[in-house]
């Protein structure tokens, strides 16, 4: 498939945004259980604004993918059958809830509404945060299922696609949370850094598995099935046109194997190896700059990772466009 930068930025930006929110809420839950020191409201508010900004940026990027963005509202109607439609609903839902979460923290509405079992004080941010967490996970699922549900594209049609979107989104979000805590000078750097490393390693396992899987399988259909001509040697002589077409532009990446191999090694380095190393170094050196660098490097790596994700997909329609004449 041809990698569309609008979709690459959409999926990486909202992944980081959702991950950042999940990091904030995880921090709040830990502090509620007195495992972590309680953070200032401004930390949650600023974090939520950044998460929201990432989601909005992703939404803006997605608009460039549409031919008719002015009709995009219609895309919410087919949620019964289309994962894309479900994403169109889940994204604004997550954005709204994260906005409310940040707003309530900013306004300081943290007086407990009620106390469960005399130990767990429940305030409005905890409830909204739980809903936003649910929305974030649903959004991860929807985004990934857009690709994983296409049964003709075998490279994507796998639970590994969902795992990759989930783990890599969470990894970049926690990485950003670590960067934010380091920048704001809170004590959560080690906490977020640890979880970011864990998510990155989980993502490394799932992404490595999908790379391995995609390097080995054969497509279910071949030229014989595509044409219904059962001859061992079939060659295309003409595509039916002399210039290009949508079919030759949308479904081919047009990049060499060597280039893609370079992209693969680069993203493996930038997404997995370097950020983990930088977080480790930051922990040892107690640096406040290195987590920021770790996030930035991992994000660039994720853009490359998503680029590679698109080039991995081999569409069966390409069987009809084997050679120009």
């Amino acid at each position: 498939m041809h990698p569309a930068f609008s979709v690459i930025f959409l999926t990486t930006l909202i992944g980081a945004g959702q991950g950042l929110f999940l990091a904030l809420y995880t921090g709040q839950l830990y502090s509620l259980a007195r495992l972590l020191p309680v953070q200032s409201e401004s930390f949650y508010a600023l974090g939520s604004i950044i998460a929201l900004a990432l989601l909005v940026a992703g939404l803006v990027a997605s608009v460039f993918h549409l031919g008719r963005p002015e009709r995009a509202w219609r895309a919410a109607t087919q949620w019964r059958t289309s994962w894309l439609s479900r994403e169109v609903i889940a994204l604004p839902a997550a954005m709204g809830l994260i906005l409310l979460y940040g707003l309530f923290h900013y306004l300081g509405w943290t007086n407990p509404l009620f106390v469960v079992s005399e130990t767990l004080p429940v305030d409005i941010t905890l409830i909204v945060g739980a809903l936003a967490t649910l929305a974030s996970f649903v959004l991860f699922l929807c985004t990934a299922m857009i690709y994983a549900s296409l049964r003709f594209i075998k490279a994507w049609h796998s639970p590994l696609t969902v795992a990759n979107f989930l783990f890599l989104g969470i990894a970049s979000g926690f990485m950003l949370a670590a960067a934010l805590s380091a920048y704001m000078g809170t004590e959560l750097v080690a906490f977020y850094g640890t979880w970011a490393v864990i998510a990155t390693l989980l993502g490394g396992v799932s992404r490595g598995s999908s790379l391995y899987r995609n390097s080995r399988f054969r497509c279910k259909v071949d030229m014989q099935s595509a044409l219904g001509v059962h001859h061992a040697q079939l060659h295309q002589k003409a595509q039916g046109f002399m210039g290009g077409s949508f079919n030759t532009r949308e479904f081919f990446h047009g990049k060499s194997e060597a280039f893609l191999l370079m992209i693969r090694y680069l993203f493996l380095l930038l997404v997995f190896a370097l950020p983990v190393l930088l977080i480790l170094l930051a922990y040892l050196l107690e640096s406040s700059r290195l987590p920021v660098a770790a996030f930035a490097i991992q994000y660039i790596g994720l853009v490359l990772e998503r680029y590679h994700f698109f080039t991995e997909a081999k569409h069966p329609q390409n069987l009809y466009y084997q050679s120009m004449a």
Binding site: R68, P69, R74, L84
Partner: peptide, 16 residues
């Protein structure tokens, strides 16, 4: 009049 040009259907068609 309803199509938003997202191209998702073309991805889902194995025949191009």
């Amino acid at each position: 009049d309803k199509c938003i040009g997202c191209k998702y259907c073309s991805w889902a068609c194995p025949y191009g």
